[in-house]
């Protein structure tokens, strides 16, 4: 009874939100957005695109125009991974026993699959400025490959210290490239390499370099979170 009353109350709230959003001037009707009075019009301008050099406008915004935001976002992810590692730190730890004996086919087929996933993720990361994708999904695919290895082998432990080092190196290189922009050009994270023609692999200045670093950082962070979730305290 209480649940039904709550459901009706919250549905009423949703209807009120819909009614409030429907009749305002500042909120456009769904499906008929005019970009000419928005800030995205400047991003889609032809001169700006040839200046930035990235064919994927979303990548241009994430890394190029709002690179400082992305630095903060990666820091948030780093802090949450740190919190997870803090909560799961035991004196003596061991791998979580899944009570599953992998057979020959699973053990060796999953290694083959891991290779293919690594190649696909590298493709997605390095083509982030040309096709959909980029550092965030590519790093997540690397982490799912590591997760596959964990699930396929009940004794597998990845080199967690190596992940920590990789994450730190990628994060510091991100900041160092930003500082180079401050020295060689005028402001933090500014593009100081000449952006070639739009649509080629070696174009868009520092955008591919930063996206590769973001991919490595996100992948190693999520992989270390997965490793933390698969450890438990040794009860012996």
């Amino acid at each position: 009874m209480k649940k039904l009353f709550g459901l009706i109350l919250f549905m009423g709230l949703g209807v009120l939100i819909i009614l409030a959003l429907n009749n305002t001037i500042s909120f456009p009707k769904f499906g008929s957005v005019d970009l000419s009075d928005r800030v995205a019009d400047a991003y889609l301008d032809n001169d700006n695109v040839s200046e930035v050099g990235s064919a994927n406008i979303v990548t241009a915004i994430v890394v190029g125009y709002r690179g400082f935001d992305t630095l903060g976002e990666v820091t948030v992810l780093f802090i949450s991974a740190l919190g997870v590692a803090f909560l799961f730190s035991f004196k003596k730890e061991k791998r979580l026993d899944l009570k599953f004996k992998p057979n020959f086919m699973l053990k060796h087929g999953s290694k083959l699959l891991f290779g293919i996933m690594l190649v696909v993720s590298l493709y997605i990361i390095t083509h982030g400025h040309l096709t959909p994708g980029g550092g965030f999904p590519g790093g997540a695919i690397i982490a799912s490959g590591v997760l596959l290895l964990y699930l396929a082998d009940d004794k597998f432990r990845s080199n967690i210290k190596g992940f920590k080092v990789l994450e730190g190196v990628a994060g510091s290189l991100f900041v160092i490239i930003g500082l180079l922009g401050l020295i060689l050009a005028t402001s933090f994270l500014e593009n100081f390499i000449a952006s070639g023609t739009v649509g080629q692999l070696l174009s868009a200045g520092i955008i591919p370099i930063i996206y590769v670093l973001i991919g490595l950082k996100v992948g190693s962070e999520i992989a270390s979170v997965v490793d933390n979730f698969l450890t438990e305290e040794e009860s012996a």
Partner: peptide, 17 residues
């Protein structure tokens, strides 16, 4: 071709597991 190779490897492994 890469996608087909992926399906060829992953589908038997998943179903047998």
């Amino acid at each position: 071709i890469i996608i087909i190779v992926f399906i060829v490897i992953s589908n038997p492994i998943g179903s047998s597991t």
